[in-house]
Design a protein around this nucleic acid. Structure first.
Lengths: 253, 253
DNA sequence: TACTATTTGTACGTATGTATT
DNA sequence: TAATACATACGTACAAATAGT
């Protein structure tokens, strides 16, 4: 007679022709490894060939399972190194009338930083012109910035400013490292966010590079307009947040 | 001598060992099919085996390319039918102090509908208790609803209501098909949204089924609390929007 | 620097299952 | 029922990145 329950809970074997695909069963099993604590302290998964042995399937079947978990954001793979669990709590980024990077994330990370990657003087295309309420092809200053929390990139933004009103915005930003401070330097002491549109898509190649994401990652895209106290648009921006690292909060008080 | 340019722009052949993986080159090429108009009017892609022939690669390589485009939301595959381009404009769903499904999407779809899928009387877990400002394990009414625009599911929501105050909410909803109307029936003529938290993740299996999405799709998750005019919480909810079909707009006026 | 072992990534081939028409 | 087309799974081989010798 077999004594049931004599050993620690044993997972059922992977079953073929059960109506559930093998990669799916394996994927679920891997997911549980984390919570069950059967894992290296560094969150490293055994190599693919070993998992394949353990589960009694081909390496490709394991790869399929892993690939789905990567897309879900549960795992992260590094060629030549291994596959790792990822678990980081998200930072809460408030979006509202007064949306500001550093002030918004204050207290949630020990260092906050906004760096200017690139800037140029260009002509407004239609959506920028509409956003800033200027004419198409009017001159605008374009900035690309990256927001860092604890040195890790959490957002990347493109901003467009009307050149006639804020010709020195790029320099001012470079000196201060903040939109708020830069605008203040140029005589605009306050501004508010008029409207924000939010979408979510898979990260583009640019996103992957700038935000150091893995293929399949998700970005939250916030498009909005900031206006001065008189209601005149001074900044049109598109910010792309890593959905793994950021959640957006909307205070509608 | 060969006459260059005598025929319509010919794409360069797929190159091996070029530093760009084959599936990647093919993926880019497929993406361009749509804009180049070399496509059936129904947006249908040629079957995998034919693409494999055309590009001179194995069918699996084509599958890899297609699978990446599906994750990006460019394509949609249907087993047994084929692979299709997807292009639908997104509906704009306003989130703010007065967030209401039908009123928010009014005018963007010809029919708007909210259906109750399931309901139960249960006990509050911690996050629900915190949201509703009641005790853990207090009785709450739970509803699962699906929001349809033009008959297509665009959102799925779970809601929790305090049972002591709103015991008849499920019935009221069933009769009216709207949270606003149901609350009104129970004597609450107005309510506002206190706070909303927004995240984005890959669709779960439930999401796929309820929102009729393809694996790899993205959902926008909005968690929030509605309060009555006295500021007392009456509804805690988690709404999951198909990111392909909905964009969220935040009016911070 | 060069070499090697380890590990993930790409690509091919083949067979069979399952859903749609 | 049959044909078509996507889904899953196995096997094999080699490329590319990393880490250590």
């Amino acid at each position: 007679m077999t004594v049931a329950g004599a050993e620690p809970t044993q997972d059922a074997a992977i079953r073929r022709n059960s109506g559930v695909s093998l990669w799916r069963q394996i994927s679920d099993r891997i997911r549980r490894l984390e919570t069950d604590g059967q894992l290296d302290p560094d969150g490293r998964l055994p190599p693919e060939f070993r998992l394949a042995e353990q589960f009694g399937v081909n390496r490709h079947t394991v790869r399929s399972a892993i690939s789905h978990l990567v897309q879900e954001g549960v795992l992260r793979t590094e060629q030549g190194r291994g596959t790792f669990f990822r678990s980081r709590p998200r930072l809460a980024y408030p979006i509202g009338r007064r949306t500001r990077f550093s002030a918004g994330l204050e207290g949630q990370a020990s260092t906050l930083q906004m760096v200017l990657v690139e800037s140029a003087t260009i002509r407004a295309d239609e959506r920028v012109a509409v956003g800033l309420n200027i004419e198409v092809a009017a001159t605008v200053i374009w900035l690309r910035t990256i927001g860092l929390a604890d040195g890790e990139p959490v957002s990347t933004a493109e901003s467009w400013f009307p050149a006639d009103r804020l010709p020195g915005i790029a320099d001012a930003f470079r000196r201060t490292g903040s939109v708020t401070a830069a605008l203040s330097l140029l005589g605009i002491d306050d501004y508010t966010r008029r409207a924000t549109t939010l979408t979510a898509t898979h990260a583009s190649d640019d996103d992957l590079a700038r935000l150091k994401l893995a293929p399949g990652a998700i970005v939250l895209v916030a498009v909005g307009v900031n206006v001065d106290p008189d209601g005149r648009p001074i900044q049109y921006s598109e910010t792309r947040f890593s959905a793994d690292r950021i959640e957006l909060t909307i205070e509608s008080a």
